[in-house]
Design a protein around this nucleic acid. Structure first.
Lengths: 310, 310
DNA sequence: ACCACTTACTTGACTTAGTCAAGTATATCA
DNA sequence: TGATATACTTGACTAAGTCAAGTAAGTGGT
């Protein structure tokens, strides 16, 4: 009995999905039945066709096969002239396995069949649903895949259509969940961002969006308050993307931008409950100017103004 | 060669996921190796434990098994006293299969093992990621599952935190994709909705959100323009949820609400390119009052005012 | 009421796919 | 240099699944 038990509904949902996908894979594999290869053989051929310098051990590990079984399977392939084994220089026990031209020829229809089958599956769905499917699959894969960190942990990019709605949505939900704020906070964010875009002055203002694996995971805005003063607004980082330094990086960008534009001061307003944001501001050199109690978003809060002289 | 070819990247992504999940299921099944049952036996037991009045044919269909294989498998179970078969009254060829108490006892550790395994898998992820995983799996399942329509096609509910951001996000993206509108439309929606919530008067104003399988797929707002005139704003329905009558239903609710509150007229502003919305308004009895060319959202448009005398 | 056809299994005869244990050659580490 | 680990290989199995043919019971049309 662990202390932190994942909810039963979640477990049941995952088990249900496993049953469902077991069947799904079974259906797809029926297409292989007529071919000369078993599912496992096809998986091996696929790996060989797509990766170079594989050894038997690699295949055993990546496909979860029995070494003895694989050994025989490869021997059969070799006898049929589908694969070749070349001794590796470094280690005489291993040999690197590769498809021969004949092997590629044998694999081609298999590959095509699988491709067509999936194409037919997708074809039943309209394009936006296809995208949803692919996206959901990638989510599952990246969550269950053993933490293969993406090459680029995140990237910053300018505003695109859909971004501000997303930021409003996520901030609204997040602060409701974490601090119990009501929907008036979300409305405030909507007003601020609506006005930001409407009166946007690219010479004096800017926004940054942190994207990770195609999803927005953080953002920040700089707006002009006067000739001398710029205001940093709505810094936010997704809980799932915290710890990557995204928040600090976003604030950093704002400071660099404000300096470059010749502002004398960067100011911001926040609430004392947002402690992790506060730490970022302090680390960046902001000083607390003043604070005052106020009632907003359904809570009693302490609002704070922070300034950074540039 | 079909005319509508799903993109190659999508196909490859799905195939990649299939390979990934084949392995994933393989890993989970290793847990069964020590038990007295094979994967297929476990699947059969699971179905028997969770559904009543199953026949052999049901199992063959739902699990994709060979009838001969299943027949023998059930015979073995029966000999071991794990299942019982009862002749069905209607059809003497079939018999309905059920686990005996002994069968339940035999299934319990199997079930527990699978449960624990999944729990361990989930335990590695923080709770919000678990939710993302489950949600993504449900998306995959509902998209690939053969269109088992949800019991309730959709339901209407009032505004919740996160809704307005979501509507802004989706409308911004949608009209950008479909009509090429730029981000100023999204900003306009944000301003409208920010102001709506801020100055919300529950006595005179209301909003409705259509939810389908836990996702917002449509919305509409009624705001007070004067004592006598209410304005319908921002009607929208997700492309994936069109054809269910959600748009018509939302407009209907607005009309009923406006009448009940004693407004004399319901008015709305739209653009002529939004043809499906227009059809809904016409069907509901709205009359085109006037229209005028204007330039907005990066396009030349024809704005229209529609009225419904209540 | 009857015949052709379908459905719901069952049985027999197989193959294949996969497992397990033991063995050999090479590499690594102390 | 010897003990241990790794990268296969081989032998000996068995479980798992397939395919075809058969039987009994239902269905549909005339």
């Amino acid at each position: 009995m662990t202390i932190h038990q994942p909810g039963k509904e979640r477990i049941d949902a995952v088990r249900g999905f496993n049953r469902f996908y077991t069947r799904q894979i079974g259906l797809l594999d029926e297409g292989l039945l007529k071919s000369a290869f078993s599912l496992t053989e096809a998986r091996v051929l696929y790996e060989l066709a797509h990766r170079d310098g594989l050894t038997a051990t690699d295949l055993v590990r990546d496909l979860g096969l029995d070494p003895g079984y694989l050994s025989r399977l490869l021997k059969k392939f070799e006898e049929r002239g589908l694969v070749e084994r070349a001794a590796t220089e470094a280690d005489a026990r291993r040999s690197s396995i590769a498809l021969t031209p004949a092997g590629r020829v044998a694999f081609a229809p298999l590959n095509q069949g699988s491709h067509d089958q999936v194409a037919a599956l997708l074809d039943r769905l309209p394009a936006p649903e296809q995208d949803r499917l692919v996206k959901a699959m990638q989510t599952v894969q990246s969550l269950l895949g053993d933490g293969a960190e993406p090459k680029i942990p995140y990237m910053l990019r300018p505003l695109q259509v859909g971004d501000i709605g997303w930021v409003i949505h996520r901030q609204g939900l997040l602060y409701a969940q974490e601090y119990g704020w009501d929907e008036t906070y979300e409305a405030l964010v909507a007003e601020i961002l609506g006005a930001f875009v409407k009166s946007f002055d690219p010479k004096w203002e800017r926004s940054w969006f942190a994207e990770r694996e195609g999803e927005v995971v953080g953002s920040v805005f700089v707006v002009r308050q006067s000739d001398a003063v710029a205001k940093l607004r709505l810094l936010y980082v997704e809980p799932s993307a915290r710890g990557l330094g995204i928040g600090r990086r976003l604030v950093e960008e704002c400071i660099v931008f404000a300096r470059a534009k010749g502002y004398k001061r960067l100011t911001l307003w926040t609430n004392d409950v947002l402690t992790s944001a506060r730490r970022i501001y302090e680390a960046a050199g902001f000083k607390l100017a003043d604070e005052e109690r106020h009632h907003a978003f359904g809570k009693d809060l302490v609002g704070q103004n922070w300034n950074l002289e540039l």
